[in-house]
Design a protein around this nucleic acid. Structure first.
Lengths: 337, 337
DNA sequence: ATGAAAGCGCTAACAC
DNA sequence: GTGTTAGCGCTTTCAT
């Protein structure tokens, strides 16, 4: 069966294409009678507007891309959920782009060889340098998520990582722990995320008159519970002794819990543990994970606000916004008695 | 700065639009010299093809939609990861659609008021009836994922749920467990997924000369670890005694583990537990979760194959394909000694 | 409030 | 191997 076009509806309804278009898009100034007639024709013919044609005519796609390394990481999955909902409320659909934390993939995202695929981009880089990001095509509104390098020309939303890391660390200190370790930074090529969290970890220790012991910093090969479990297991086996671990993220925390248990130690009795992201399962593991909880809702709304400004033509300097966080205290590092 | 069009490139390169188009799309029959000239012009002008225009001209968008209830559920997040990768390899981008298991949202997905947004749809329904799905617009190639109702006119990919549930159940029986419960089916409005898994559970019990004890079936309000923990906790508190639980999914299993621990019992010593989906964290919880692992890679490739057939014009009856699964044995229900 | 016609930027016949 | 031209189906001035 042949495709039904706007023109067909117009002919059947006995009006012009413009009028049909007005009805389809809920343009207010259409007489009730005309609207009725047009709607009958639409129903009778089973007409559906062709999105591609509309996109070409308007120059807008109604879509934004959400790019990050890997949706299967719980934090990104939960972020994607919120983005899809919030974007939907603003009339946007979400295109999913995974980079696998690969530099080339990230470059492809930012310098897409094609134009007009999406109206804007929400991007959490993992590898690209700030300088490279600064050179991205100016025709694609962009908001960066997370704490990796961001040029001053580009908008960005993140939480205060050093502050949050210091809070988590002080929480362990308040529990009387003194030999604190850190788990989950990269073995090589330290990310800015890890750098900032380690900085907060260090400042809190120093604020308590303690020093960071490099021997207690447990790097991991990748962002995964498995990798953290291996690394922490190896550290403990090699004689590393700690009474608390600040973990870079909840996956590292979950892996750390496992390694600690396998070493025959107890959480939090022997080793207290904090995570980061407050993923949904953090409250349901055994023990549950005390975690830094970013205000993801605020993060996403702020990011979409910034993007909306850019879509609206704003082209000032990049705005770098901090959003809130809190430490959610659970069993792995309980409240001070 | 004004947008650069194909025509501009053609003028600068001194060739026709057709030739530029050929170069852009890597059409083979272009002389090296011409190609070189065109590419210089493209680089000089910073030309990027406009996707919307191409979509309108070709009638293809190069995008497929992936629709299910909620990306933040680990199974769907992991599925989305595989879909995005596999689709990418086939030249498709993925549009994310969440239904929140809401009937109206599901209807919207299937009867999108607009045409030409995506070339095809991968959809895991949770609420729609088979009859309703059968009436979907014929102009949108569709492949269903999962075991919910599927009309014979539509393609669908799933695993053999009763068989897998029976395997999990027999695994518990082989461990000597005799009072087996089931966790995670819906309190009301039993889904087909739950129905099939319960059927396998029952058949395995009956195969061992046992009967299902309705008192040991623990329904949950929603698909979440929290909901399962509450329901199982309440069941145990009310005096329900079991030595094994087959859980509808890994989230239910994780919540069940937690509830069992809170009740002062041990897993698997007192109660052995199996989950379903083999989500990434199933191997890292404490104890790790024995789980039914669907072959997600095969599921996705098969679904994309079926979709490709439809995109290629195939319009025969729906093909219903079963893909493989296996029981991954871990600590929550270990191997028989 | 509605109509007529000119694009939006690309692809695809069909020529040459 | 390359050029010409007519759409793809919609939105949008500009009239009326």
């Amino acid at each position: 069966m042949p495709r039904v076009r706007l023109e067909d509806v117009a002919r059947v309804a006995g009006v012009s294409m413009k009028t049909v278009s007005n009805v389809v898009r809920d343009y207010p100034h259409v007489s009730a009678a005309t609207r009725q007639r047009v709607e009958s024709a639409i129903a009778a013919l089973g007409y559906r507007p062709n999105i591609s044609a509309r996109q070409l005519a308007t120059g807008r796609t109604g879509m934004i891309a959400l790019a990050f390394s890997d949706v299967s990481l719980p934090y990104f999955a939960e972020l994607a959920r919120v983005v899809a909902h919030a974007a939907g409320e603003r009339g946007f659909r979400v295109l999913l782009e995974q980079t696998d934390a690969d530099l080339d993939r990230e470059r492809q995202i930012l310098s897409a060889r094609e134009a007009g695929l999406v109206d804007g981009l929400l991007f959490q880089p993992a590898r690209m340098s700030s300088a490279e990001i600064a050179e991205h095509r100016q025709d694609l509104p962009l908001v960066l998520l997370g704490e990796e390098s961001a040029p001053i020309t580009v908008d960005r939303v993140m939480i205060d990582n050093p502050a949050a890391a210091a809070e988590a660390t002080r929480h362990l200190l308040a529990l009387g722990r003194r030999r604190l370790g850190f788990v989950g930074h990269e073995v090589s090529g330290l990310s800015r995320t890890s750098t900032l969290r380690l900085a907060g970890f260090q400042s809190a220790l120093e604020g308590a008159g303690l020093a960071v012991d490099p021997a207690l910093l447990v790097a991991t090969d990748e962002i995964s519970a498995r990798s953290a479990a291996q690394a922490v297991g190896a550290a403990l086996a090699s004689g590393v002794r700690v009474d608390g671990f600040v973990c870079r993220d909840d996956l590292a925390a979950i892996g750390t819990v496992r390694a600690v248990h396998e070493a025959g130690l107890r959480v939090p009795h022997d080793i207290a543990i904090t995570g980061w992201d407050d993923i949904s399962l953090a409250s349901m593991t055994h023990p549950s994970i005390t975690s830094v909880a970013p205000d993801v809702r605020a993060l996403v709304e702020t990011a979409l606000d910034l993007l909306a400004d850019r879509l609206g033509g704003f082209d000032g300097l990049g705005r770098h916004q901090l959003i809130g966080h809190r430490l959610v205290v659970r069993e792995s590092a309980p409240a001070v008695a």
